[in-house]
Amino acid sequence: METHVERISNLQDIKKAELDRETGLFLYEDMTLGRRFEDKCAEMYYRGKMFGFVHLYNGQEAISTGVIGAMRKKHDWFCSTYRDHVHALSAGVPSFEVMSELFGKATGCSKGRGGSMHLFSREHHLLGGYAFIGEGIPVALGAAFSSKYKREVAGNNSSDAVTAAFFGDGTCNNGQFFECLNMAHYFCC
């Protein structure tokens, strides 16, 4: 069995997205925002400005930027995990609202009630960070089903929103992951 290091070393080249100036600068800015924001979180956490657990995204920015950056803002839907700050930023939630939420302030995207693991934004179609693993996947499945239902049953042809659910490797041993894979394909195809 290949290790994680061997797998990425032996990965076959797949067709990558095209790189032009505009795309390159957009991707660079979004990834840099994610990295610098998380570094600042660590600083503020150690200065005692945040409470509870804080999970940072350093190293994984290409995923938030690569996926959310290819989707339509305020149209498509996103479900995150407890490692949710950078997904919120990529989805367009202003850094002030995310940082406010981490400080438990009323100006936070969850009105200061959520904190680090429960970022939410109706405006930016972020259907939540979730403290437990796998919780976001069934919510994402419901959002995806509602797009399909609106289009095929309610007759709204403009309903074409796509939903992305983010989760980590540990979640893939969780029952909700398999149940949702089953339903996602069964409802759709």
Binding site: I14, K15, A17, A62, I63, T65, G66, V67
Partner: peptide, 8 residues
């Protein structure tokens, strides 16, 4: 990021 964006 370009590989992820392409797949996405």
């Amino acid at each position: 990021v370009l590989a992820v964006r392409g797949a996405a």
